[in-house]
Nucleic acid binder design. Structure first.
Lengths: 202, 202
DNA sequence: TTAATTTCTTATCTTTTGTTAACGTTTTGA
DNA sequence: TCAAAACGTTAACAAAAGATAAGAAATTAA
């Protein structure tokens, strides 16, 4: 896949947030960069500032923390989604999260500097403010649901809900990553799965 | 406290996001409404669309869910913060969260309709896009930390962290609300507190 | 292809949390 | 002011989850 194809995919996706005319699109694309990550390569690294905000043209990533030397997965992103260590990107402070490609992954990036430049460019400013607002609002909504799931549901209920709504995660992620994403250990998830199946057999 | 005083407090607070000139401020204030809630009154109710986005001039609120008939607190907001059932407000879908005043509480509100009107008004559009973006980004950062706390920390660790960073919550909220906010039962929080104190005594 | 690694399950034991109930204290509201 | 309600702690028991280890199955990579 070449850059032009990737940009076309990006442009179509972006239209759910904002529509650029030809002139604006030309100015916008001058500010983006392309990344190709091999499996297991990192997009962001803990203790460093995540300087970019990426769109996954293809592939997938996981977000993880290192806690007492152990690798704890907290989230996933797939093709046609954004990725970044948002707080780090927005506040320019070091992140505590690693973002790692789980397969060969292509991204289109906006650096913090490019974002600020576009916000300062009269041609793009208004649409970039709107774009930033709508993207932040979108993730705010996702997070609201995710926090509510930790407050109001048991691990088993969270897993049962994932069975309803988490097709990509279930089909494409190993179970021990899913366990940590649900806030439990892999051993515990294995037991939950057994609990759920057993009543059917009996 | 009169409306003018409340508006002055609001204006000063908003300057961390966006600064209005006199003309813009006059236009902006035409779109806001005032609410005064008595203790235990609701700002938002589950199964209805939360149509407003509020700023707490004074007082405090808690967010809670009703799960199997039981009241589960998930969050708090205090004076000089915003409040809303954001997802419901942004997507115009029914919320699952109640927002209740915990004391006499004064708010300044922007309705969904007012927000859209301001976004469509050339005088205010750009600053409102920016305002919306920065507020959403701010809450995105808060949520990122909160989700990470559920993935990477035990309930005891979350409580120990709250002791460091949650002065308002600890001093102004009853312990059973704090317990649910941490994702555990009140009985369990009482035990955690005992565990933490005991090593000091021995 | 095959050896190494990763992944998932299972078992055992420990720790933590949930549930329920009782009790004393504090707060609230009529 | 005083009865009722709310709040926090503790106890006892049940349920769930964490830790560790072992072993089988699947995947990966040389």
């Amino acid at each position: 896949m070449d850059a032009a194809t990737a940009l076309t995919i990006y442009k179509i996706y972006l239209e759910r947030y904002v529509t650029f005319n030809i002139e604006e699109w030309e100015a916008f694309t001058k500010h983006v960069t392309f990344t190709k990550l091999k499996k297991k390569q990192h997009y962001a690294t803990a203790d460093t500032v995540c300087d970019k905000f990426g769109f996954l043209v293809s592939g997938s990533v996981r977000y993880y923390h290192i806690i007492n030397g152990e690798d704890i997965t907290s989230y996933f992103s797939f093709e046609q989604e954004f990725t970044s260590s948002y707080k780090s990107f927005l506040t320019r402070t070091p992140t505590i999260t690693y973002i790692q490609a789980l397969e060969e992954t292509r991204l289109i990036n906006i650096s913090y500097h490019a974002f600020q430049q576009m916000l300062a460019d009269p041609l793009l400013a208004h649409k970039m403010e709107r774009f930033g607002r709508l993207v932040a609002e979108h993730y705010l909504c996702c997070y609201e649901d995710r926090v509510a799931s930790f407050i109001t549901q048991s691990p088993e209920e969270r897993y049962l809900q994932l069975l309803q709504t988490g097709k990509d995660i279930l089909q494409r992620m190993p179970q021990h990553y899913i366990a940590h994403y649900l806030g439990i250990t892999p051993v515990s998830l294995s037991r939950i799965r057994k609990r759920i199946l057993e009543p059917v057999i009996k």
